[in-house]
């Protein structure tokens, strides 16, 4: 289980994350949503230790992550899979090598076992047969799927996804959302997704935190969000004409 307790972060004189607390539900797709620049990505980076918290606790299975030493942090990180906004695939490696990388580093699997696992992961994200391609040869959607395959290669307990469908067409976005949702359920992973895409919220949002100006402004699920009376959340959810015409009954 992951829990945030009163975390704060400032960059210079900008207070970017303000006293945020939230419990992420195990085995569910948890969403952090909000406008661009509201602090979503910073919260995720604080959670995985890419930034240091100024104050507050990030609890992974009872352990306070920021207070752990480097080795203990590495042990927790081995349980984390992360899908970055740009994919962050290693340019110098083929797709197969990218997916196999965490297995090479952390497991003692035989070559054949690793190959099986790589093929399974690539098949799972519908990239079978693309093993020998380099990231530069992939489209945006394929890169995201490949990064998802790498994130799930080592059977993570936690899956972090930073804007998984940014820059993708609506059809590919839905494929990515479905993959994330399916993988979460199939392997009982705790997934944390950062997004500002309302389609994703409605598709996969089981536990949602709305961040506004660095604060946890609202929490709920995808059914509650559509009936919200919270002004800032309402403005965010129904910003587009499509959302207004499709979901607003009055």
């Amino acid at each position: 289980m992951i829990e945030l307790r009163n975390i704060n972060k400032t960059f210079g004189d900008r207070h970017v994350v303000k006293d945020v607390s939230f419990k992420f539900q195990e085995g569910k797709t948890n969403l952090i949503i909000g406008e661009s620049g509201c602090g979503k990505t910073t919260i995720m980076k604080l959670m995985v230790g890419l930034h240091e918290v100024d104050s507050g606790d990030v609890i992974f299975d009872g352990a306070n992550f920021p207070k752990l030493d480097r080795k203990e942090k590495q042990e927790i990180r081995k349980k984390i899979g992360m899908l970055f906004q740009g994919g962050a695939l290693f340019d110098s490696q083929t797709l197969e090598e990218n997916v196999s990388f965490p297995l090479d580093m952390f497991t003692e699997l035989s070559k054949a076992e690793k190959q099986d696992r790589v093929n399974f992961c690539l098949q799972r994200v519908k990239l079978e047969g693309k093993n020998k391609l380099y990231p530069a040869e992939l489209s945006g959607g394929m890169k995201k799927r490949a990064a998802l395959a790498r994130a799930m290669a080592n059977n993570p307990r936690y899956l972090f996804c930073d804007e998984p469908n940014s820059g993708l067409d609506p059809k590919t976005s839905i494929i990515i959302d479905e993959l994330i949702s399916d993988i979460t359920q199939e392997y009982n992973i705790t997934t944390i997704v950062i997004t500002h895409d309302m389609n994703s919220v409605i598709e996969i949002g089981q536990n949602i935190m709305f961040v506004h100006k660095g604060e946890n402004w609202w929490t709920g699920d995808k059914t509650e969000i559509l009936g919200t009376k919270n002004k800032e959340l309402f403005d965010f959810v129904f910003a587009s004409e499509f959302m207004k015409s499709f979901f607003k009954k009055d």
């Binding site: 995985v48 230790g49 990180r77 081995k78 992360m82 970055f84 740009g86 990388f101």
Partner: peptide
């Protein structure tokens, strides 16, 4: 540097790799 700005180094760190 290119690995840093494309988050490849962050990806290594998050995997638990030095």
């Amino acid at each position: 540097g290119a690995m840093r700005i494309t988050e490849q180094i962050d990806a290594l760190d998050i995997m638990g790799i030095n």
